[in-house]
Design a protein around this nucleic acid. Structure first.
Length: 480
RNA sequence: GGCGCUAUCGUCUAGGGGACUAGGACGGGGCCCUCUCAAGGCCCAAACACGGGUUCGAAUCCCGUUAGCGCUACCA
């Protein structure tokens, strides 16, 4: 069997939607699993809405996700000649006809049909035109479209995800294939291109199911075997409606900005509507490729759950080597306007286990870089109030003990014993010493273990910040 | 309205006629660990839409109902 050829065919009329990204992912996975070819085709036939900017964003998004293509990007606009030739061939062979009905006439019929509560069907009035009449109108310069003749036969196919699907030809319209400006309508363009590109498997969204019988009819009229179709289910918002702008972030770029790792996004997207079977959740790329099949694709739509995405991202964050996080964190810091000199790796390492996104990591790194800038958050303030004078007193005790440490003694083990010593000597619970230090340094009641925190912040910065804050809070009796 | 697709915990899903007392994961609740929070470990609550068949036996197969979604353009 020859290796499959699949394609991802976005239209550059908007950003790379997560649904589109998942379709691309499935195409890519299928190509890699089977040793086939992944073709990228930009469907830019809608001149009104297509932009180069959108094309670039889509390409960037795919690249970010690690989805590659072996051929293309092709631009559908470049194949207009072939589309037109195919339409005219169908016309010449009597499988299509010229239609002179204007948009206004058609709209009027449609409105009338809807008012009557019946589905609109083109009434084929132009099919009745004699060849000489057609000739006459064309010569007179009357604009016309080309309509494809749908016959009444049943059209069925064996969908790779849904199984057998069938439509009755009589329920389908004689649809337009070529506009009056000689540009192709989507259904013709797709079929024409898929034939030209020798596509064997069409993996695309569920919303194309109703286009499929038309396309199969076109394949047959053009004398080609249709490809295998695999219609993957939609992605929905939390309210069960098709995922859209009002659900919040829907573009892949949004998640990149929110600090999601591409590997996590890819893993999450793969699990939306596909399952390898069994209990696997975190699936490395090579395993994903090895286990991917069209049969494993779910029939029902999936709700996009950002909470689970963030959990997954957190898992990747803890597993990924610090080196891989260095660049994204630096990028984020500069976006935040935070100067970051020196080796960030120890900081990232000490903070990443507690983070769900790169954004969290960067924020915490910034705090450790400049602890003096931190302000107590709500829980930090609550702690200050609760402890009262003990807060500053304990801070002083810790501060004094830490100052006595020699520079070479500033390491996690020694820091821990020092603080434990402070607690014991003053008959305090360890937490009563640790928490004020933590809040002074980070503003938060949550962080890595305090001895590690002190270690990564370093002696000068720690001690300076501790005494500054102690003084500040001493003077200002109501710091919260 | 017509046509089509779909239906397992709140969410993502496992399940392919007996292995189902329906499994896992997120989220929720509890406990352990602990200087805090994550992580990790243990435990709890939580689902086969409904009605008919077929069968000795149905979450699994068939039919219907209901609900949701999609399409119904000289958009893609």
């Amino acid at each position: 069997m020859t290796p499959p050829r699949v394609r991802f065919a976005p239209s550059p009329t908007g950003y790379l939607h997560v649904g589109g990204a998942r379709t691309a992912l499935f195409n890519w996975l299928y190509a890699r699993h089977t040793g086939g070819t992944h073709v990228l085709r930009i469907e830019d036939t809608d001149r009104e809405r297509s932009t180069e900017e959108h094309t670039r964003i889509i390409l960037d998004g795919l690249t970010w996700l690690g989805i590659t293509w072996d051929e293309g990007p092709y631009f559908q606009g470049e194949y207009a000649g072939q589309h037109q030739a195919d339409a005219e061939r169908l016309l010449a062979e009597g499988k299509a006809y010229r239609c002179f009905c204007t948009r206004e006439e058609l709209d009027a019929q449609r409105v009338k049909a809807e008012a009557a509560g019946v589905g609109f069907h083109y009434d084929r009035r132009c099919l009745a035109l004699t060849p000489s009449e057609v000739e006459k109108r064309v010569r007179a310069g009357a604009p016309s479209t080309i309509r494809f003749i749908m016959d009444d036969r049943e059209i069925t196919w064996n969908d790779a995800v849904h199984g057998r699907i069938s439509f009755q030809g009589r329920d389908l319209d004689d649809f337009v294939i070529l506009r009056s400006d000689n540009s192709a309508i989507y259904n013709l363009a797709v079929v024409s291109d898929d034939i030209a590109m020798r596509i064997t498997h069409v993996i695309r969204g569920d919303d194309h199911i109703s286009n499929t019988p038309k396309q199969i009819a076109l394949y047959s009229a053009l004398g080609h075997e249709p490809p295998v179709f695999a219609h993957v289910p939609m992605i929905l918002g939390a309210d069960g409606k098709k995922l859209s702008k009002r659900h919040g972030a829907t573009a892949v770029g949004d998640y990149q900005e929110q600090g999601i790792l591409p590997a996590a996004m890819r893993n999450f997207l793969a699990l939306m509507g596909w399952s390898p079977g069994g209990d696997r959740e975190i699936i490395p790329e090579d395993e994903m490729i090895r286990r991917f099949t069209l049969e494993g694709i779910q029939k029902k739509p999936a709700v996009f759950d950002t909470t689970k995405l963030e959990w997954l991202n957190g898992q990747y964050l803890s597993a990924v080597p610090v080196e891989d996080l260095l660049e994204p964190v630096k990028r984020q810091l500069s976006l935040m306007g935070v100067q970051a000199n020196g080796d960030l790796r120890p900081l990232i390492d000490s903070v990443k286990a507690r983070s769900r996104t790169i954004l969290h990591v960067a924020e915490q790194v910034a705090t450790r870089l400049y602890p003096e800038r931190s302000k107590p958050d709500a829980k930090g303030q609550a702690l200050i109030l609760k402890m009262g004078p003990a807060f500053v007193a304990n801070l002083d005790l810790a501060s004094t003990a830490l100052k006595a440490l020699k520079p070479n003694e500033w390491e996690p083990e020694r820091l821990l014993t020092t603080l434990k010593g402070v607690a014991e000597a003053n008959n305090l619970k360890l937490g009563d010493v640790m928490q004020p230090v933590r809040v002074a340094l980070t503003g938060s009641t949550v962080s890595e273990p305090v001895n590690e925190l002190l270690f990564v912040v370093g002696p000068q910065s720690s001690i300076r910040t501790l005494s500054e804050k102690a003084q500040h809070w001493e003077r200002d009796k109501n710091p919260a």
